[in-house]
């Protein structure tokens, strides 16, 4: 009997030890002992100024989390839910945000150079003053987002949906925006020289003073858009739709 009890106690100890060795990934992550917390629930977590470079956070729930000034360079946030999260001043250089949920997420003045945001889904995302050079937005659906004062050089947004977003005065020169949907957006004063916009839907957008010089506008839908004083010099407009468009010279095309 005593031997049995002793064996049972030893077994329990071994199991407990194994559990301890395995640890709690969430607790380890929050305490800073680990950078790996895939699919963890980190709702409302305070991760400000944390060094999370290369962190494994795929499918993590980071709703309302504060990642202010955090270092997330090269982090894997694919499929993570960052809705309501504040990433002001965060460094996300080369991070993967593919398929991430970004509802009301704040990337104010964040660095997202080389970041992968393809197929990300969200709304009203704040990218103001963010560095988005060579970022990838292909297939992303991010309506009503703010892109003012961003750096987008070399970024791609093939087939992305940015309807209702604001790109006012943003330099989007030579970007590949093939098939992009930017319906009802503010694109006044944008620089779209040599941009690839074939098949894009820019209907009902404000394109006041936009510069499309040398851009590929093949099949672009400008229905109801305001192109007043826009520059279309040397742009390819084959198949473009100008129904009800306020043209650069002030005339309105019939609907």
């Amino acid at each position: 009997m005593i031997r049995r009890l002793a064996l049972a106690a030893l077994g329990a100890l071994a199991l407990g030890g194994a559990a301890l060795a395995q640890g709690d990934p969430r607790a380890d992550f929050l305490s800073g002992a680990s950078k790996s917390c895939s699919a963890c629930d980190l709702t409302s977590a305070n991760l400000s100024r944390r060094d999370l470079a290369g962190a494994e956070l795929a499918d993590a729930i980071l709703v309302d989390a504060v990642l202010f000034d955090a270092n997330l360079a090269g982090a894997d946030l694919a499929g993570a839910d960052l809705s309501g999260a504040d990433l002001t001043d965060a460094d996300l250089t080369g991070a993967s945000l593919a398929g991430a949920r970004l509802f009301d997420t704040i990337f104010f003045r964040a660095t997202l150079n080389l970041a992968d945001l393809s197929d990300a889904e969200g709304q009203a995302v704040i990218f103001r003053h963010a560095l988005l050079q060579r970022a990838k937005f292909d297939g992303a659906v991010l309506p009503f987002s703010q892109f003012e004062d961003t750096r987008l050089a070399g970024a791609t947004a093939i087939g992305a949906d940015f309807r209702g977003s604001s790109f006012r005065a943003v330099n989007m020169r030579a970007l590949d925006l093939t098939g992009v949907v930017i319906i009802g957006a503010d694109m006044s004063d944008t620089n779209l020289r040599q941009a690839k916009l074939a098949g894009a839907d820019l209907s009902r957008s404000d394109l006041l003073r936009a510069d499309f010089e040398g851009a590929d506008l093949t099949g672009v839908d400008f229905s109801g858009a305001r192109l007043l004083t826009a520059n279309l010099r040397n742009a390819t407009t084959t198949g473009a739709v100008f129904a009800g468009t306020l043209m650069p010279d002030g005339t309105t095309r019939p609907p």
Binding site: L30, S31, G32, S44, N46, S48, R49, V66, F68, D69, D86, T88
Partner: peptide, 27 residues
Amino acid sequence: ACGTNGGPPGLTLTGWADYMKCAPEPA
């Protein structure tokens, strides 16, 4: 609110006395 290491405010509080509602800083 709960502080976030000098960042934006976190969980809303009613006063200083609610300090225990804020998660301790790791260090």
